[in-house]
């Protein structure tokens, strides 16, 4: 017997908002994954749109390499508005 593959479920709770990861489930194909996702994750009107993605298709970064991966952002304070010193009289900017 072959086991049903794992799917990741993403739900848009209402138009105007992004899809967010809701959880995962096993299903034999995409159609079943969508229907099961509806039955499990939107029983109380939590969503208006569902995405299902085979978990095996997700490429994830490795937390052990977080140092090299995210270090380039650490020393670039000039990307933040607070880096720029402006006079106090300037009320809104």
């Amino acid at each position: 017997m072959k086991n049903w593959p794992l799917w990741e479920v993403f739900i848009r709770s209402k138009n105007g908002l992004e899809h967010r990861h809701a959880g995962s489930l096993h299903a034999s194909d995409a159609k079943m994954a969508l229907e099961n996702a509806r039955d499990v994750y939107t029983r109380r009107m939590e969503g208006v749109s569902i995405w299902v993605v085979p978990s095996a298709q997700i490429t994830a970064s490795n937390p052990e390499h977080n140092g090299e991966m995210f270090e380039p952002a650490a020393d670039k304070a000039y990307r933040h508005p607070t880096f720029y010193i402006l006079p106090d009289e300037l009320k809104h900017m």
């Binding site: 017997m1 072959k2 049903w4 034999s28 194909d29 079943m32």
Partner: peptide, 16 residues
């Protein structure tokens, strides 16, 4: 339920 799980998988493979 084993045959149902098997049948669903066989169907998915055939359709793909």
């Amino acid at each position: 339920g084993a045959w149902v799980r098997d049948a669903a998988m066989a169907y998915a493979e055939k359709s793909s």
